[in-house]
Structures are given as C-alpha cells and as structure tokens.
C-alpha cells in the first residue's frame, strides 16, 4: 500500500506546482512530476502477491516474474510524455520570446 501512497503524494506535488506556481518552467516541472507518478503507479501495478505472470506457463518459474506488460506500456507512456514535455518547453520558449517573461500572471492577452 505504501508505494501507491507515494505515487499519490508525488502526483499531489505535481498538481501543487501546476496550480500554485506562477513560473511556466516550474509548471512544466510539476507536470513532469504528475506524469512520473502515474507511470510509477502503472509500473507497480505489474506486481501482485502470489500471482502468475501471464506469458510464462511453468508455475514455479512464473512466481519469480512480475507481469512484463505494464513495463512495456509505461515505456510507451514515457515516450508520449517526452513528446508532450518537449512541446510544452517549445511553447514556453516561444511565449518567452513574445512576452519577455515566464510569469503566468503577466501572460494574459486573451480575455474571457
């Protein structure tokens, strides 16, 4: 249970950074935290006590394995995270070039 609580804690750290911090880069770091929390949670989901991993059929051997599928899925999720982080950073850079600031409270040209 404790690993899952750590994930939740990490997720809340990230959410805190996104909601409270005013600097775009800090918001992006907070976003990365949230993403890692979800990925970590998914990776933990591969282990179940006294359960058999799906691919290996020999029960004695299978008890020593964790389910490999979540790891493959997390790898995919990390790739997606890479793309989103890169795009966010690129947007933040362009915003800095236009507004000359990373402060979210001063980036308010759109109203409504």
């Amino acid at each position: 249970m404790i690993p899952f609580l750590v994930c939740v804690l990490l997720f809340l750290f990230g959410l805190y950074a996104i909601v409270v911090k005013r600097n775009l880069i800090k918001m992006i770091i907070g976003f990365c935290f949230m993403e890692y929390a979800v990925n970590l949670f998914f990776a933990f989901a591969g282990f179940k006590r006294e359960a058999l991993a799906p691919i290996i059929t020999d029960p004695d051997m299978a008890r020593n394995f964790v389910d490999p599928l979540p790891q493959a899925l997390v790898l995919t999720a990390i790739v997606i995270g890479l793309a989103t982080t890169a795009l966010m950073l690129a947007l933040a850079m362009r915003i800095y070039a236009k507004y000359k600031t990373f402060d979210i409270t001063e980036i308010r040209r759109l109203k409504g």
Partner: peptide, 13 residues
Amino acid sequence: AIFLALGASQYVM
C-alpha cells in the same frame, strides 16, 4: 531534431 529545435532555437525561431 527536438534538441536542435530547443537548443539551437536561434535558427529555428
């Protein structure tokens, strides 16, 4: 390409 776009942005921008 991502590295170039983020790091070498003088040209890309």
